[in-house]
Amino acid sequence: MDHDTLVAFSKSWGLFYLIAFAIGVCVYAFWPSNRKMFDDAKKNILDRDDTPWQ
């Protein structure tokens, strides 16, 4: 494998990887059924936390 092939591969597939990854993250973050889980998570840390749950 020579230098130019590697560079070309890096440049093109690096970009596709980035786009695919970004879409995946957005889908996850905005998936409707995840909303409740996120809301719970952000509120739950404010609860009392002096002992572990059994």
Binding site: H3, L6, S10, K11
Partner: peptide, 21 residues
């Protein structure tokens, strides 16, 4: 790991063939 490793690989891996250029 999947998110973090690609950047390094893309930039570093081609440098191993740099003697060609």
């Amino acid at each position: 790991i999947a998110a973090a490793s690609v950047g390094g690989l893309v930039e570093i891996a081609p440098l191993f063939t740099i003697h060609e250029t």
